[in-house]
Amino acid sequence: MNIFEKFIFLTEKRNIPFTVNFELTHRCNLRCIHCYLDNAKTQKFRKNAKNYELTTDEIKNILDQLADAGSLWLVFTGGEIFLRKDLFAIAEYARKKSFLLTIFTNATLIDSKGALRLADLALYQVQISLYGARPETHDYVTRIKGSFARTLQAVKLLKKLKIKVVLKTPLMKENFPEYKEIIHLNEKLETNWQMDPWITPKNDGDQTPLALRTLPGQMGEFFSNEKFFPKEEFTTGEKKRFICSAGKNLVAISPYGDVYPCLMWLVKVGNLRGEEFLQIWQNSPELNSVRKIKFENLKICKSCNLVPYCVRCPGLADLEDGDALGSSRIACRTAEIIRERVKCSPR
């Protein structure tokens, strides 16, 4: 067991919240077509959302509690976190508390001054959303003209300062045709990259974004590409992958202080405005139930022959069909494709 594996094992076994996904705001300057937050019902609320968001002092207090609880890897996400005027005050405090800090952003609001301040933070990573290799594709997804140019400009600024940048692309019908160009762009920019075809329902259960998911033929092409296809991982697939870290060594916090096992698994287990973090983390009946879930409890999956090829997410299963113990449609579809590829690939 290497040090990292030992760390994961220890934190999962002892329920130490090693990873924290902290949403600092749900406000955003883009209007992405696939966004799991944005919808007509919440837009009105989101305009005034900053009045309800955790304040700078509340967030600092939560960070103190998280550090005491053993959290190390902290991810600031949104919405668009640079819409918060206190972002640097919060991030600087987090680094002072020795968190390993990653930020998720669309980068459109990062200028040269902001990039310099980010460089001073010694971030673990800056993960940036990129939706296409061409301006028209990216801007079609974000529904904001000029967003591609602004994002790319920021990426170049960050790279120049040797900040570790990861460009993340959710693949959907609209941008799939240029995924190879996106890889090429990443190679040109010398950025790390991630792509996945998992478009999720909105947080309120609205299934509209699912219509944007890649077509079956596109999924097949995606998983036949050596750059994506985790062949070794799936040919030795075990059912342990079914039980994820959510609620064990992973926790999520909303801009309003709500606590969840994961940003994908929106079972509210408490609110940090009324309770201390450890009080929620150690005593929540919902979290304790999540921690007790075993493979045998998964109604459909426990007897499914796709298990060795499947990466199931309980949160996604819950969002798709309202049952975290049920199967996930996108996971089943992906597993079927992977099984076919494994069968067809030479050993």
Binding site: L10, R14, A67, G70, L72, S98, F99, Y124
Partner: peptide, 8 residues
């Protein structure tokens, strides 16, 4: 510039 935590 490092990140650190004491756990157990």
């Amino acid at each position: 510039k490092i990140a650190s935590r004491i756990i157990e």
